[in-house]
């Protein structure tokens, strides 16, 4: 305790959830303590409940037709806009990552890499179909093509890399038109909510990305078993939970992606995008 009054008391941020473009508290009224690297209190994060997960899925589904109906060019512009907004809040994120234990240099590098990752994925929006689609030379008088389409509602268990890892799992999901519920890193959830503030100010329609903070092991099974979730990214799942989550996911045959949680600075490749794509093949006769 200081023995004199501070010059000015800082205004702290209340970390809430991000659902449907709004920042509600958990309906459960619960929160949990987030500490810094030295174990000191940093903030209370919302501890999302299964009902929050349910509400988030509903918001995600609601956003899907609109977002997937945007032109790829438009989605690319919005992802690029996210990069712009993130760049503008660079110092804030550096500070937040440092409070979570990163060195000054590492924090700065991670924010830079996160911005660059949005830029990388932004450019993919209008190229995915060229790379993964095809004109199929069928044996008959038919025009036949295959085009990628977003799978739908994706539930993402984000890794513990609080910003770069988070961006690296969210961007490839939404760039193709999917919408997602992301469960943030449990020990380091705060950057996810700050990132949500970036998303909320980037022309990204509400509900395209929904962020839940809380206990992964509590929320994940509800998402894995949810019949209106089309796919599941288990990147941040604990190894011992994978079997049960994959088994839950079989209920409605979710597409399950289990990417490695290492090497966020490496070239991301296309696997995280193609994992959440469907291929639609369309036939039409040619004749007069």
């Amino acid at each position: 305790m200081s023995d004199r009054m501070p010059e000015r008391l800082a205004v702290r941020k209340t970390y809430k959830l991000f659902i449907g473009g709004a920042f509600p508290r958990s309906e459960s009224g619960r929160s949990y303590v987030v500490t810094d690297a030295k174990g000191r209190f940093t903030a209370n994060a919302s501890q999302a409940s299964r009902k929050d997960a349910r509400d988030a899925v509903a918001a995600t589904r609601k956003a899907f037709p609109g977002w997937s109906g945007r032109t790829p060019y438009n989605r690319g512009q919005i992802l690029y806009r996210i990069a712009e907004m993130l760049e503008g809040r660079r110092d804030q994120f550096v500070g937040e990552l440092r409070r979570a234990g990163a060195s000054k240099g590492d924090a700065a590098d991670e924010v830079d890499a996160a911005v660059d990752r949005w830029v990388w994925y932004a450019g993919w929006a209008d190229k995915l179909a060229a790379v993964t689609g095809a004109a199929n030379p069928v044996s008959g008088p038919y025009f036949n093509f295959s085009a990628p389409e977003p799978t739908g509602v994706v539930a993402v268990l984000a890794p513990d890399s609080p910003l770069l890892g988070l961006v690296s799992v969210v961007a490839p999901v939404i760039v193709s038109g999917n919408t997602c519920v992301v469960v943030a890193s449990e020990p380091a959830p705060l950057p996810s909510i700050t990132l949500a503030e970036v998303l909320a100010t980037s022309d990204l329609p509400g509900g395209v990305v929904n962020v839940l903070t809380g206990r992964r092991a509590e929320i994940a099974p509800w998402l894995a078993s949810h019949m209106d979730v089309n796919a599941l990214d288990l990147t941040g799942a604990a190894a011992e939970d994978v079997r049960a989550l994959e088994s839950d996911a079989a209920g409605n045959l979710k597409r399950v992606f289990r990417g490695a949680e290492t090497g966020w600075t490496a070239d991301p490749g296309t696997a995280r995008m193609t994992a959440f794509l469907e291929t639609k093949t369309v036939w039409h006769p040619m004749g007069v």
Partner: peptide
């Protein structure tokens, strides 16, 4: 749906996913 047949139906080809 993964396969959409327009003005035809139940066509299959090894070149078409």
């Amino acid at each position: 749906a993964g396969v959409v047949w327009a003005n035809t139906f139940n066509k299959f080809d090894p070149a078409a996913p």
